[in-house]
Amino acid sequence: MDFPDSFDVSVSYERIKPFVHHTPVLHSTDLNEKIGTKVWLKCENFQKVGAFKFRGACNAVLPLENSIAKNGVATHSSGNHGQAIAKAAQIKGIPAYIVMPSNAPIVKIEAVKGYGAEIIFCEPTQMAREQTLLEVIEQTNAYFVHPYDDANVVLGQASSAWEFLHQIPELDLIITPVGGGGLLSGSILAAEAFHTSNNQPLCKVMAAEPEQANDAYRSMLSGSIQSLTDEQITNPTIADGLRTSLGTIPFQVMSRAQTEIVCVSEESIVQAMRYIWERFNMIIEASCAVPIAALLEKKITPIFKNIGVIITGGNVDLDHLPWNKKQ
């Protein structure tokens, strides 16, 4: 399958359902009052490996035929996708080779090791990731599972929004963060599938990203995939999971849906992380605090009756919480 379709969403969900957690949905009166409408949080931070990425990894790795899987799987990742592939490979009983940037968070590096994968470090650029991965694949003949530009990965990520819509059918907006676009494009497909199969109004799907990594926003404006600027690479966003450029498959889905993206400041991301900790007693990653920041900054208009936010992960280095840093 070269391109994901909304008709494939339910099939993919049934395939991975035995292996993934059916994650809970939380809400808060205080958050509702701040935003002025009902806000629901889909807590993928409680997913296996602590992030939604396990869904896509399962849908890509577990169905592999033995003739392909015998040499293992390989990918590049700043953390959560690497953990997810490592865990899926562990379940399938095959090797995993994970290329990680040298500035990846320690907590994510240790988690990848914990699932038994071999880590190969590279410079923190997209070019270095891809070149190092090619070398690994040449040496091992492992099967490459792209972090987001893969139809089965996108359909696996779609299962989060698919679950979400079945839990809260009245959702009229889902907001996700956007980095490579796998979750965002999957959520668009899930909303379309739910609309078709359940005769429900089509739920709008949009995204939020850091101003310091606004390549997806610029891509939608220009009509072609844009990269991070040199300044954004030199001074990276705190949202480490969103430092990647869009994939071709996600971008095509996003473009077809004319997806809206809003951007938020670094300060607001930290404030959103802290707010979720104080009100929900949850530590969440900076990357998934981005949609919360967009809501708190009143970047989302018009007002929707039921807004869903996918909380994408909770793998945070507790020794380096951003609000504890000296200014």
Rank of each mutant, 00 (worst) to 15 (best):
Thr312Asn: 05
Pro201Lys: 13
His76Leu: 01
Ala272Leu: 03
Tyr148Ser: 05
Thr29Leu: 11
Thr237Leu: 03
Cys263Val: 07
Asn66Leu: 02
Ser222Lys: 13
Val264Lys: 06
Leu64Gly: 05
Glu138Cys: 08
Arg15Asp: 14
Ile94Pro: 06
Leu171Arg: 09
Asn198Gln: 12
Leu26Asp: 14
Ser222Tyr: 01
Val270Leu: 02
Pro201Trp: 11
Ile188Leu: 11
Ala88Thr: 13
Asn324Tyr: 02
Asn199Ile: 06
Gln157Ala: 06
Trp162Phe: 10
Ala289Tyr: 06
Thr140Glu: 11
Ile174Asn: 10
Ala128Thr: 01
Val154Ala: 07
Ala213His: 08
Gly72Met: 14
Pro18Ile: 07
Ile119Arg: 08
Asn45Lys: 13
Ile175Tyr: 01
Asp150Cys: 00
Thr196Phe: 04
Val39His: 11
Phe144Leu: 15
Gly247Thr: 12
Ile188Asp: 06
Ala96Leu: 06
Val9Asp: 11
Val290Leu: 05
Gln90Val: 01
Pro124Cys: 04
Ser219Lys: 00
Ser222Glu: 15
Ala239Gly: 05
Tyr217Arg: 00
Arg274Tyr: 03
Ile119Thr: 09
Pro18Leu: 08
Ile98Gly: 15
His320Val: 02
Ile269Met: 04
Phe46Arg: 15
Leu155Ile: 05
Trp162Gly: 08
Asp319Asn: 07
Val205Arg: 08
Ile261Met: 09
Lys113Asn: 15
Pro250Arg: 07
His166Arg: 11
Ile310Asp: 06
Gly314Pro: 07
Thr75Gln: 05
Met206Gln: 08
Glu110Asp: 14
Cys263Lys: 03
Ile119Pro: 13
Phe19Met: 12
Asp2Arg: 08
Ala207Val: 03
Lys48Arg: 15
Ser219Asn: 02
Ala294Cys: 05
Gly181Ala: 01
Leu173Cys: 10
Ile307Asn: 14
Tyr275Ile: 09
Glu110Gly: 04
Cys288Tyr: 03
Ile106Leu: 14
Glu267Leu: 09
Phe304Ser: 15
Gln83Cys: 14
Pro4Ile: 05
Asn199Tyr: 03
Gly36Cys: 04
Pro322Met: 04
Met273Ser: 01
Ile106Glu: 12
Lys17Ala: 14
Asp230Phe: 05
Glu285Leu: 06
